[in-house]
Design a protein around this nucleic acid. Structure first.
Lengths: 212, 212
DNA sequence: GTCTTTTTGTTATTTTTTTCACAATATTTA
DNA sequence: TAAATATTGTGAAAAAAATAACAAAAAGAC
């Protein structure tokens, strides 16, 4: 199946839109509704669904419950996805307490740091020494890790994670990580995202000027 | 100039790579070096540069200092970009203390919240009442805001920001915000990013299975 | 029960993005 | 100084992604 990152991102967004629509009492939904909610075209929605073999009824749309179940299945949300956080600094701690993952499927198991002052067993989610990472990952069969350490540590720590058995890294360190083909890396660079925004705001301001 | 989001993201990454190369003592750089550092092809690098009229020397590559200056200029990093944070919860607080923005150009001016227990003038960056947002944004001519409030508050708060004069929003609330054409919105949904990673890790695992 | 309307599913078309390829031209070597 | 070599800059080609278009089918009207 030839699907790309953007397609899966959209599928996630459809799922979020569906949850909202369900909460509003929707039982059926049309591609146009999802398109509006996710900010794409209705043919895009249908194209994405067709890639996953998701079908509805001509004239009848899609049943919200079935669709949610189907998408949750695609995204692996019907089984528990165990996640660790590496680096208990600013970003790491914020993610440790982030409520957005609670809705289902994603379970943050523990955080790890080199700084002993960060260790804690009192919290609901423990902060453990980095040395314990390997054993923990192997014992609990964790495949997904969030990397939130400094730029200088990032590469080294990512190698520790991968050698321990982590297969997917969500990287917040401001460096473009890459790895072997069997490891998936998703880089989120906050400064880059802000720079992007700033660029388009400034570009917008210039364009506006022309018409003033 | 017909340039897209992805192109600007790459330009930011080239800048980061250049800073690292400069720190290593590089004076000249070739498109291939930047391609390796940013994880793209060398012709992609040259194409991107050509879009911005960035030129080097045939056979001589690009001068690191000049290139950095040029890209910083494109990204607006040669002038101060004032930013506010709205929502001083988990994510908001983390960004308030985030060191990654210090390297230049981006200055977080203040944070805002509705919860009086969050207010603070002691911090280097103050946390102020949401009611003060409009005045602050107008007094300081802030154009960029980071939105880090709950899902339910996000839409309402974004409207407050926009009506106060904010022209670009980096949205961390788990909802796809949209706005009028003169406001740029960059949505970062942490759960969606994780789901994406999980999908590809699971897909990878299945593919591996076939060859085992 | 037939007709009308609406919406899907998919194929074709268009647009966008990336890669390829190579002439033009600096730099280095001899 | 001339020849050899490496690298840019860009137009053409290929690949990927998005949009449009429409036949097929389901739902509802009458």
């Amino acid at each position: 199946m030839a699907l790309n990152r953007k397609c899966i991102i959209r599928i996630s967004r459809y799922k979020n839109a569906l949850n909202r629509l369900k909460a509003l009492g929707f039982v059926k939904v049309f591609s146009g509704n999802l398109a509006d909610a996710a900010g794409v075209s209705s043919s895009q929605v249908r194209k994405d669904f067709s890639l996953f073999g998701i079908t509805g009824n001509r004239r009848g749309g899609y049943k919200v419950d079935e669709l949610i179940k189907r998408i949750r299945d695609i995204l692996g949300k019907n089984e528990l996805q165990k996640v660790i956080i590496v680096g208990a600094g600013n970003i790491g701690k914020a993610l440790l307490h982030y409520k957005g993952f609670e809705s289902g499927g994603i379970k943050v198991m523990a955080a790890f740091d080199i700084d002993p002052s960060k260790y804690s067993h009192e919290l609901e989610i423990p902060v453990l020494p980095l040395e314990d990472l390997r054993g923990f990952v192997q014992d609990h069969e964790v495949k997904i890790g969030i990397l939130a350490v400094t730029e200088v540590a990032a590469h080294h720590v990512s190698e520790i994670m991968i050698s321990a058995g982590i297969k997917g890294i969500l990287n917040f360190a401001p460096i473009q990580l890459r790895a072997a083909d069997d490891v998936v890396i998703n880089n989120i660079n906050l400064e880059v995202e802000l720079e992007n925004l700033i660029y388009f705001v400034n570009a917008q301001a210039k364009t506006d000027g022309v018409f003033e």
